[in-house]
């Protein structure tokens, strides 16, 4: 949370000078975490690999990831992946992926 405020603060200061440039330089929350999905689901969640994960709502993605994490979807490779992330990280990933249309 602290980091969020720090980053936001920096962005607001910079906005006075140049909003566009600075906004592009400050990575959006969740993007780096979500990039763990890209190897199999395509850059930004869209690609020629496994299921496309872009264009879905945050809650839809989060629910699916939690289901994988619980083991209810079996003990496949996605279950193992989901088990490696904290709840906060899964929320952050879902939230960022939902911005990809």
């Amino acid at each position: 949370m602290n980091r969020f405020f720090r980053v936001t603060g920096a962005a607001i200061c910079a906005a006075i000078l140049s909003w566009g440039a600075q906004a592009q330089s400050t990575p959006p929350a969740g993007r780096l975490l979500a990039s763990n999905c890209f190897q199999c689901h395509g850059t930004n969640g869209r690609g020629s690999g496994f299921d496309s994960i872009a264009g879905k709502s945050s809650s839809e993605i989060y629910k699916k990831l939690k289901k994988f994490q619980s083991g209810k979807e079996g003990n496949g490779i996605m279950a193992k992946h989901a088990m490696g992330f904290t709840d906060a990280q899964l929320l952050s990933i879902s939230s960022w992926l939902s911005t990809q249309r």
Binding site: A10, Q39, Q89
Partner: peptide, 19 residues
């Protein structure tokens, strides 16, 4: 590197995956 060029510290909680 993108953060460094913007005067920011690296993400303090990176996650990576191997498959």
């Amino acid at each position: 590197i993108v953060r460094a060029f913007a005067g920011l510290q690296p993400d303090q909680g990176p996650v990576t995956n191997s498959a």
